[in-house]
């Protein structure tokens, strides 16, 4: 028995190495004082310093944060409603509408939204990006909220209603607090998905507006530079902080 466990742990360790080694390499090279991602030359912060003087990158980062905040906010409201709707009613249309966008390859949503926006004569830019991001985030929030709904005892809100609470009062005092971890997990997911999205944004962004992933893509497409290592490392640190904060503030939110 011990022997088998050892083999299993070794195999799993190898897979963990596979998962983390590439990211470690990115971080290490971001601190390397060489233009090439090859040999270790010496320690430097200069790539980070360059980042903060890269106008295009800073604008893209600001755009990304703004887009993610707005889309995650809107998708959280709509997704929570959809999740509750999916729990309460056996409408076949709603789950189909909510779940298919999650299951489809991203590129399909990207090109169909491009066609749609062009057909409406909408100019592509921050607004079209936000509208697209809300579309693919709703499903993830809805699934998270729907899962949380199943864990709530319905007799709680029934009791509140029997004792004379209005539907809104009951929602505010009973359902919403119980749902909160599910909503929060969904919101966090939506925010990260939005910040992270490259494929759909690529099609609906138009020429004038850039996001962080689009900017990284064009940098990488031209040349592999240590500056990309630095921005990548910063992004990883940011995500790590976000996750740790959520785990500290709301234990249980990450579990669902």
């Amino acid at each position: 028995m011990k022997h088998k466990n050892l083999a299993l742990i070794l195999a799993a360790g190898a897979v963990f190495t596979f998962l983390y080694l590439p990211l470690v390499i990115v971080v290490v090279y971001s601190l390397n004082d060489s233009k090439l991602n090859a040999e270790w030359v010496g320690f430097t912060w200069k790539w980070y310093d360059q980042l903060f003087h890269n106008r295009a990158l800073l604008t893209a980062a600001r755009n990304s944060l703004m887009i993610a905040a707005i889309s995650a906010g809107a998708a959280t409201v709509l997704g929570t409603l959809a999740g509750m709707g999916m729990y309460h009613y056996r409408l076949k249309v709603l789950p189909a509408l909510v779940l298919t966008p999650i299951a489809m390859p991203d590129i399909l949503m990207g090109v169909s939204l491009l066609l749609f926006f062009i057909m409406l004569n909408m100019s592509l830019g921050l607004i079209s990006i936000v509208l697209a991001h809300i579309t693919f985030c709703i499903g993830f929030v809805a699934v998270s909220v729907r899962a949380r709904m199943s864990g709530i005892d319905p007799s709680l809100s029934e009791a509140a209603r029997d004792l004379g609470a209005s539907p809104w009062h009951c929602f505010q005092k009973i359902t919403l607090p119980l749902l909160a971890p599910g909503i929060l997990a969904g919101a966090l997911m939506a925010f990260t998905l939005s910040i992270d999205d490259f494929v759909i944004t690529f099609f609906v962004a138009g020429v004038g507006s850039s996001t962080l992933p689009l900017q990284i893509y064009s940098m990488v497409k031209i040349a592999v530079t240590p500056e990309v290592n630095a921005i990548s490392t910063l992004l990883m640190v940011l995500t790590l902080i976000l996750i740790t904060l959520t785990a500290r503030l709301f234990p249980g939110a990450l579990r669902s």
Binding site: L23, V26, I195, S232, T239
Partner: peptide, 25 residues
Amino acid sequence: LLVILPFWSNFLVRIYAWMIIFSPS
């Protein structure tokens, strides 16, 4: 969480990491 963590880092960063690993130098 350790399995999900790399998944939370940017999609392009994860591709980029392999560009470094596979680069001729």
